[in-house]
Design a protein around this nucleic acid. Structure first.
Lengths: 162, 162
DNA sequence: TTGATTGCAAAGCATTTGCATGCTA
DNA sequence: TAGCATGCAAATGCTTTGCAATCAA
């Protein structure tokens, strides 16, 4: 009886269309998982999303979250991102411009950025090798400005009081 | 009694220095694993390397390969690369220019490439966000020229004989 | 001698799968 | 009603860890 509620957002319509096209079924769990996913702007891991969903409906199983995220990805609503921490993260993909990530190895902050030149150069490199790009992934790892600032502070303080 | 043999290559010297610096010990297993690793130019997974090593000394355990690859990485001789197939691959890192990868999703071929402009642009983007780059990873996924050719062939053949 | 190293088996993780039950279309 | 979906538990695949025996320095 929780399955109800008319589709509101474009994302929900995309989801329903995908469900129909694939001969799948609409369920309250899938609705909830999509809803919670859309309410965040982070790069949620499966576990993260599972925890959030569990708060609103403790009966939902983690397996269902795994399976639903896969459907959302197929529907073009989510995009898988791997940051190298061993698990898969998901970010919004619908009407979200492609972008890359800078990851701070100290605080874990993720900065999204986009560069048309970067994209163009990649196309150029691909063309040079007669390679047809399906997708690409650029990940820059390092230290964000805050962490760099913090370190400078620390250095200054410790040299002031030896 | 297999530990012997003087260091020959620069890599072996780097390895020995790292061993000493860290207070580790030189063993025949580590020597062998390094040796086999240096003899390949592929992007070996742990399993791959383990199989090769086992051919030359069946008594070496997979755990030792895991542990040794970690040491080689710390020593700067190897670099971890993740292609998204779930396991970690390793490539040579000593005096090897940084490069990126194009991965064919059909045949699995990996094309290494390098673009100074691409590197420069990344530095530029990082500077814009006051981000200090430690490392970066660019992975382009798609179809290589051979697989594209093959598909064209197939299309031509099947349309010729309907 | 002494502490690092090894190989095995067991443990850890993230993710997937089998299956009986439940629910959508 | 038919068949997809669910949640649990078990299985998987890669990697790490505990441990007793072994070995380098």
């Amino acid at each position: 009886m929780t399955t109800a509620e008319e589709p509101r957002t474009e994302e929900q319509e995309v989801f329903l269309k995908h469900i129909q096209r694939k001969g799948l079924k609409r369920t309250s769990q899938r609705d909830l998982i999509l809803d919670v996913f859309l309410r965040t702007e982070d790069h949620l891991s499966n576990e993260d999303l599972y925890q959030l969903v569990k708060k609103e409906d403790p009966t939902v199983g983690q397996t269902t979250v795994y399976r639903t995220l896969k459907i959302l990805t197929e529907a073009g609503l989510a995009r898988e991102v791997r940051f190298g921490d061993g698990r898969t993260h998901y970010e919004h993909n619908y009407k979200h411009q492609h972008h890359d990530h800078m990851i701070c190895s100290e605080c874990g902050k993720i900065i999204e950025f986009f560069s048309a030149e970067l994209e163009a150069l990649q196309d150029e490199m691909a063309a040079k090798h007669e390679f047809e790009i399906t997708q690409h992934l650029l990940r820059i790892i390092g230290r964000c400005s805050e962490c760099r600032q913090a370190e400078k502070q620390n250095a200054a303080n410790s040299s002031a009081s030896p």
